[in-house]
């Protein structure tokens, strides 16, 4: 479903992606991990046609992301990391806006909007402007707007930002069900426990290149670690960082707090 070959991207002298190559089949929940600045969001932006790659090619559902960008965009849904939306609108207005950009008819938008509102507990607030919404409530609206047009591929960049435990359970279940129906889920996150439980396959990106690729079990075997957190730490962390953190915490605790 997603095919990436030798994609590179730089911002000035900073190399964000250095020749990324990946193949992601339909129906897979693909976990994309990496420390801050590893290139995760850049990958999502390239694959969703928001920015062009410097070199390399990427195809989604057989369409080249640069030459057939509109065809690609019709088939994808994106939850951006920032959770940006028009806060002066109501959820119903925002979904209508998003749905009509995919040529959904009014009836379908209303029906699906109602279904998402019910699922996410927004039924009573569907006609309220979102300026007063909490971060979690806005995130639910963004997730619904990404799925409203029933895309084949869903890019989720930190989708659980601000969500409460109940909403997290709902989103996780939704992701599993979508994958079972053959949708491809490209899941970027820092919450390793969720990735460990949810994803069929995990890629760990470090400084724009793939540091590890495989199922959670195979990564654990390969690195001889018992948790994904430990695998991630081994592959991407400075070995002395843990000790430095401990020393700093001890220093802080040792200093007298001024009244």
């Amino acid at each position: 479903m997603i095919s990436i070959v030798g994609v590179t991207k730089s911002y000035g002298s900073i190399k964000a992606l250095g020749g990324l190559t990946l193949e992601i089949p339909s129906g897979q929940i693909f976990g994309y991990l990496g420390p801050n600045g590893a290139g995760k969001t850049t990958t999502v932006k390239i694959l969703s046609g928001m920015i062009p790659p410097d070199s390399g090619t990427a195809r989604i559902a057989g369409f080249d992301i640069t030459r057939h960008a509109l065809e690609v965009k019709k088939r994808i849904g994106v939850v951006p990391e920032s959770g940006a939306l028009y806060e002066s609108l109501t959820p119903a207005e925002y979904w209508e806006f998003a749905g009509r950009l995919y040529h959904l008819d009014q009836q379908t938008i209303s029906r699906r909007g109602q279904e998402f509102a019910e699922l996410f507990g927004l039924k009573d607030r569907i006609a309220e402007r979102m300026n007063g919404f909490s971060k979690g409530m806005k995130q639910r609206v963004v997730i619904a707007s990404a799925l409203l047009h029933n895309p084949d591929v869903v890019f989720l960049d930190e989708p659980l930002n601000g969500l409460d435990a109940n909403a997290v359970l709902i989103v996780k279940e939704l992701i599993r069900s979508l994958a079972k129906k053959g949708k491809t889920v490209f899941y970027c996150s820092h919450i390793l426990e969720v990735v460990e439980k949810l994803c069929d396959r995990v890629v760990i990106l470090d400084s724009g290149v793939v540091a590890a690729d495989g199922s959670v079990a195979s990564l654990k075997r390969m690195t001889r670690r018992t948790s994904l957190e430990a695998v991630f730490s081994k592959l991407t962390q400075d070995p002395e960082a843990k000790d430095a953190a401990r020393v700093l915490a001890e220093k802080l605790a040792g200093e007298k707090q001024k009244p």
């Binding site: 969703s48 928001m50 994808i76 951006p80 920032s82 940006a84 028009y86 950009l101 995919y102 890019f155």
Partner: peptide, 13 residues
Amino acid sequence: PDEEEIILHRPVS
């Protein structure tokens, strides 16, 4: 600039 994340990934030519 926020429109990048609201509109640019949608099929708008």
